[in-house]
């Protein structure tokens, strides 16, 4: 492989990896933006989304086949179901604690994370599940590098979701309400905005996006596992902070950049792939030290 091949290969890897990170990072960022909670359980929501998609596909396969039609249907089903799961979690676990000390809600989020992934672990007896699809390996060749149509479609689907989200945030009344609540929740309450409803909607959208990423990761990697949400949860958080937490385009940018840094970073001979996770974590610490507000965030002085 020459340099051109390596670069092409890594660009492809960056885009795929970056798409997953970005989709999960969006959920972190949206929830943080609106209620200033770091939802530790978000990585597990991604994992649950993958399993719901997997279940849906195995049920639908007889009717719609295991090609794109069946996959799209399972993806949408999973997004809806996981969205409602997110709303349920918010309603039961987080809402009672909105005005409690921060420590309480953080610990609760940790509890939700444990609950989710141990439930799935018990249900799957801790085994990997093969995410079988009928997608082939056809694709485009760039030099010695083969990029499958599956990869291309996944990246395009991510782009589509992000465009839809941007339109939703900027053009709809709910998007406006979300932005308003993130600035001043009490004022919104006084203005008659149904704050609880908007918070629930935020959880719905964030969870649905994570589910989409989960199903896509299943399709891409070919297998899913109850622990798959843990590391990506950390990475997506890194991406969200990198872009500027609470800022929607920031999460997208952060995800793509982290994917790129990680793909190219691990190409450096002195960083082996087994150090990949340590690499992105080191990056997180560096970002937090030197640019805690992220690339797109503004320095805000906390109100006293």
């Amino acid at each position: 492989m020459d340099l051109f091949d390596i670069v092409t290969q890594q660009i492809a890897n960056s885009l795929i990896l970056g798409s997953f990170y970005a989709l999960v990072a969006l959920g972190y960022s949206m929830v943080y933006g609106i209620i200033k909670l770091l939802n530790f359980a978000h990585g597990d929501i991604y994992m649950v989304g993958a399993f719901i998609g997997f279940t849906a596909l195995s049920l639908l396969v007889g009717f719609l086949g295991d090609g794109w039609l069946g996959i799209s249907a399972s993806l949408i089903l999973s997004m809806i179901a996981t969205g409602f799961l997110g709303v349920g979690i918010q309603r039961l676990a987080y809402r009672p604690l909105l005005s409690a000390p921060r420590l309480s809600i953080l610990i609760t989020a940790m509890g939700v994370s444990l609950l989710l992934f141990n439930t799935v672990m018990a249900a799957t007896i801790g085994e990997y599940k093969a995410f079988e699809t009928g997608l082939g390996f056809e694709g485009l060749d760039f030099g010695n590098i083969h990029i499958s149509y599956t990869q291309i479609v996944l990246v395009l689907a991510t782009a589509l979701l992000m465009v839809a989200l941007t339109l939703f945030i900027n053009k709809t009344i709910y998007g406006k309400a979300m932005r308003a609540i993130s600035i001043d929740m009490d004022a919104c309450r006084l203005m008659g905005i149904d704050v609880n409803k908007v918070i629930a909607l935020t959880f719905f959208v964030g969870s649905a996006l994570a589910a989409a990423a989960g199903v896509m990761a299943g399709v891409y990697y070919g297998s899913i596992h109850f622990f798959m949400g843990f590391i990506i949860g950390l990475k997506a958080f890194t991406a969200a902070v990198f872009g500027g937490i609470g800022i929607i385009p920031g999460a997208m940018l952060g995800g793509l950049l982290l994917g790129t840094l990680e793909s190219f970073g691990t190409q450096l001979s002195w960083i082996g792939t087994e150090w990949k996770d340590v690499f992105s974590f080191g990056l997180l610490i560096l970002i937090l030290v030197f640019k805690p507000n992220g690339l797109m965030g503004r320095t805000e002085i906390e109100r006293m």
């Binding site: 676990a93 409690a100 309480s104 809600i105 610990i107 609760t108 939700v112 444990l114 609950l115 672990m121």
Partner: peptide, 13 residues
Amino acid sequence: MLVFGLILIVMMI
């Protein structure tokens, strides 16, 4: 671990 997760949530609430 599932029980522990529940304990954390229930205790906090």
